[in-house]
Design a protein around this nucleic acid. Structure first.
Lengths: 150, 150
DNA sequence: GCTGAAAATGCCTGGAT
DNA sequence: ATCCAGGCATTTTCAGC
């Protein structure tokens, strides 16, 4: 129903993924359309939530969050309702939350300032969601958040 | 050396993480500074690579990549040089690559259109990097790429 | 849905405090 | 390092095709 994307919309989306601050003038040249046509299409892509927003890509170290980790969650009580993402939503250190198939129910990507903060975060997560955790510390990040192929 | 970030720069960075297309006028109001002062600071944050760029946040499903997975890598030949990220860099389906401590050497986050494409991608990864893989399929994504706490 | 142009807004460079 | 001001570019709307 909504999986399709016209070639021109594809081009627009690709350009905005590469540089989210590109001007409509610039976009128009690159995709070969008038400025107002591009403007219209971008607004529609935003409304359809194909484009969900725009963000600055930050250097985690530079903003004081040099420690990244994956935290995998297992429910302790198998009878408890599966509302873990909600229970954890308020914890700001959690950047992403994935429901996964496999040995664990969820995988979280978290960023903190120090090992001490990671320890405290783990305590908070276990407490908030009644889960056991398995943590994989990220040593370095060769690349991250690259532009998708389209 | 580079771990610090002044309160005003923090505020700017936070605003641009929340909305990467915010105008300088808008930013100036929000952080309580003149437009040109904000302009200057943003330019410097970009130059210092605290801000590494801007990007549109896309709905993976809407752009035709509904299948997300984590792929963990183990070297096959322990004597081979550790240049896996480089060997995999050309594969566009790989969005992120993390070097991790734990049972595996690297974790990749990948996005593809279908299980068939995932199968083919795995073949490509094993071939390019001479590694064995363990794949964790993402069933759903409650949230992703949230703005860091700062 | 695209175009082209007009009006409003915002960008961004200098120069002064 | 911040503010002010001017010219310039961009955004945004609207009428016509």
């Amino acid at each position: 129903m909504s999986g399709e994307l016209e070639p021109i919309d594809q081009a627009i989306v690709r350009e905005l993924a590469a540089d989210g601050r590109r001007s409509f003038t610039d976009l128009a040249e690159r995709v070969g359309l008038s400025v107002s046509a591009v403007h219209q299409r971008v607004r529609r892509l935003e409304q359809r939530a194909v484009i969900r927003g725009y963000t600055a890509r930050l250097d985690a170290e530079a903003i004081g969050l040099p420690l990244t980790a994956f935290i995998s969650l297992s429910p302790i009580d198998p009878a408890a309702p599966d509302d873990y993402p909600q229970r954890l939503e308020h914890i700001e250190e959690i950047e992403s939350c994935y429901s996964v198939a496999g040995d664990y129910s969820y995988v979280l990507l978290v960023r903190v300032a120090s090992p001490t903060d990671l320890e405290e975060l783990l305590r908070k997560i276990r407490e908030s969601a009644k889960v056991s955790t398995r943590t994989t510390v990220v040593l370095s990040t060769p690349y991250e958040g690259r532009t998708p192929a389209l």
